[in-house]
Simulated scan of single mutants.
Amino acid sequence: MEQTIEKESVAEEKVIRVEGGKFLSFFLGKEEYAIEILKVQEIIGLMAITPVPRMPAYIKGVLNLRGKIVPVMDLRTRFGLNEIEHTEETCIIVVQENQYLMGVIVDKVSEVADIDGEQIEEVPTLGSGRQSEYLSGIGKVKESVKMIVDVEKVLFDVPDEVLENNGSAAPAGPVA
């Protein structure tokens, strides 16, 4: 009987409820994603990224942002999408979660959208698709669907060997 209670509590922990609010939406190919605007530090154009040895393919390296070293992740690669040539619209979204900063390369930024809690649905079970584990909800805005990214899981749930190699998730302070 004790095992049943544990399983139920584990299942309850996996349910993430996303509250409504403002979200920055961006594209990877034709798909539109969104990140809570409060987690966005800034949006910058592509800059020189210094590769760091022995990192997973989705960690492109680090950049110097006004004296602060920020790790940079290619979100296409993290989601298992094909890499494409960067365009003038390709940019880096600098995201902050707790004390950590991470730059995220996206194809293009779309808009800041208000998404009410009633417009956010739970992520459907998509079988063995790994991408769904990186989403915390699906927002329905007008005629479009915005997949809400679980920032903590996508950006900062990196394998232990990555952190042991170079402390990739850089502590953040106020960025001047």
Rank of each mutant, 00 (worst) to 15 (best):
M147W: 05
A172M: 10
A170H: 07
V123L: 04
A170N: 07
G167H: 12
Q131G: 09
D157I: 05
G117P: 06
E122Q: 11
N166I: 14
E161K: 11
V145G: 00
S136T: 08
S168C: 14
T125M: 09
L155F: 12
I148Y: 00
E133K: 10
V154D: 02
K153R: 15
G173K: 12
E133C: 02
L155K: 02
G117M: 07
V162F: 01
Q131Y: 10
T125V: 09
P159D: 15
A172N: 04
E143H: 08
S132Y: 12
I138Y: 04
V145E: 08
R130M: 07
D157G: 09
V151L: 05
G137H: 02
L126S: 07
N165T: 12
E164S: 12
G117S: 15
G173A: 12
M147D: 05
E118G: 03
K140V: 10
E122W: 03
N165W: 04
P124L: 06
D150L: 13
I148F: 01
F156H: 14
V141M: 09
V123H: 03
I148N: 00
N166C: 15
E164T: 11
G167F: 15
V145M: 14
D157Y: 06
D157N: 15
G127L: 04
E164N: 10
K142A: 11
S136F: 01
K153E: 10
K153Q: 10
D160T: 10
S136Y: 00
T125Y: 14
G167Y: 15
V149N: 02
E121M: 14
T125K: 09
R130Q: 09
P124H: 13
L155T: 03
K140D: 06
L135F: 13
F156D: 05
L155D: 03
S144R: 15
D160W: 00
G127F: 15
S144K: 15
D157C: 12
K142C: 05
D160S: 06
D150E: 06
G129H: 14
V141P: 02
M147S: 08
V123G: 00
D150W: 00
I148E: 00
P171Q: 06
V162P: 10
D157H: 13
N165P: 03
L126T: 11
V162C: 05
Q119P: 04
P124K: 11
V145D: 01
V123M: 04
D160F: 01
P159Y: 05
V149F: 03
G173M: 10
L163Q: 15
G173Y: 07
S168K: 00
P159R: 05
M147F: 10
V145R: 06
K142R: 15
S136I: 07
G129I: 13
S168F: 14
E152L: 08
G139H: 13
G127K: 13
L135C: 06
E133Y: 08
F156Y: 15
L126R: 09
I148D: 00
K140F: 09
D150V: 01
V123D: 01
L155Q: 02
